[in-house]
Every structure is written in structure tokens, then in C-alpha cells.
């Protein structure tokens, strides 16, 4: 069996390791004196840019009605099946609305496909990244937690209109 040789063999200097090791050591040493990037989290908070994909939320119009028409596309596209939508009829002009809209934050992977597929710009990724629960039930976010006024999401919506 023919041995597979690498195209470029190591030079003598590389073979005796030591110069390479010194190079590696000097790199880490240099880094020890460089400025640190750590953010002292609970005191200092990260304010994400518009491109950040935090917790998905439902857009609430100024009149307090959700944009969502419960088409179920987000639910269909969701790779981890985090979204459950149950539609019902309303008297509004848009005759369909979600009577139940639930995102299981234990399943959500923050991929943003729901936002991308939404034909109504009704579900967008917010900047909220502080998610902690102590039981499975708390991780089910219903409409009460998901509905967010459109004012707070303008940043993300502008971003989507420019780049989506």
C-alpha cells in the first residue's frame, strides 16, 4: 500500500519543533497583554445590534391587535417544531387570527426562519436574550409574553426591510 505523503514536507527547523514552539509561546504571551474583551455581564449589559437574533416575538400594532393571521408558516418552517399556532375567526377585516400562539423556548434555536418566512412581518427576532426558566411550563411563551408593541421592534423591522 502506497503511503500518502504530504505535498510539502516539514523543513529541518520545523521538524525540531523548538522554533515553532517558541513562536506559539510568544503569540500567547503577546495576547496576555492585549486588552480584554470580557463584559461584566449582570452589571454591564450587552445591547445587541439590529442584526441580532434574540427571542422571537409577535408584532403588536398600535391599536393593540397582532399582525399575525395564524397562517402557520412559521410553525411549518420551524426546524425544531417550537411554534404552535391555533387559528380562529374574528370580525376584523383580516378574518383570521391566532387564538393560541405558543413558542416553546426550550425547543427554539433562534434560527430566525420564522421571521424570514412570515408573509405579514408579524413575527420578528427581538433583542431579548435573557431567558431562564426553572420548569418546562415556564418555557412555553404564549401570546401574553410574545406580543410586543411595534415601536420597540422598529430597529429590527427596518433592518429586515433593508437586508431581507
Amino acid at each position: 500500500m502506497a503511503l500518502k505523503r504530504r505535498e510539502k514536507d516539514l523543513t529541518f527547523l520545523e521538524k525540531i519543533y523548538i522554533p515553532e514552539i517558541v513562536k506559539g509561546l510568544s503569540l500567547t504571551l503577546k495576547n496576555m497583554f492585549k486588552p480584554k474583551f470580557t463584559m461584566q455581564y449582570p452589571e454591564e449589559k450587552f445591547i445587541p445590534p439590529a442584526s441580532y437574533r434574540g427571542r422571537p416575538v409577535l408584532v403588536m400594532e398600535e391599536n393593540g391587535v397582532e399582525r399575525c393571521v395564524a397562517c402557520g408558516l412559521c410553525s411549518r418552517v420551524c426546524p425544531p417544531l417550537a411554534i404552535e399556532v391555533q387559528a380562529a375567526e374574528t370580525e376584523n377585516e383580516k378574518e383570521r387570527y391566532p387564538v393560541k400562539f405558543e413558542i416553546n423556548m426550550l425547543r427554539c434555536i433562534f434560527c430566525g426562519l420564522c421571521e424570514e418566512v412570515c408573509p405579514e412581518e408579524a413575527i420578528v427576532m427581538s433583542k431579548d436574550y435573557e431567558l431562564a426558566f426553572t420548569n418546562r411550563k415556564d418555557a412555553l411563551y404564549g401570546k401574553d409574553k410574545l406580543l410586543t408593541p411595534v415601536m420597540q421592534l422598529q430597529d429590527r423591522i427596518d433592518f429586515l426591510r433593508n437586508y431581507k
Partner: peptide, 10 residues
């Protein structure tokens, strides 16, 4: 600590 410094952490 040293590992943190080498990785630009605190």
C-alpha cells in the same frame, strides 16, 4: 487566570 489572559479574557 493565565489561560484567561492568553485568550483575552479576565
Amino acid at each position: 487566570k493565565i489561560s484567561a489572559w492568553a485568550q483575552n479574557r479576565i
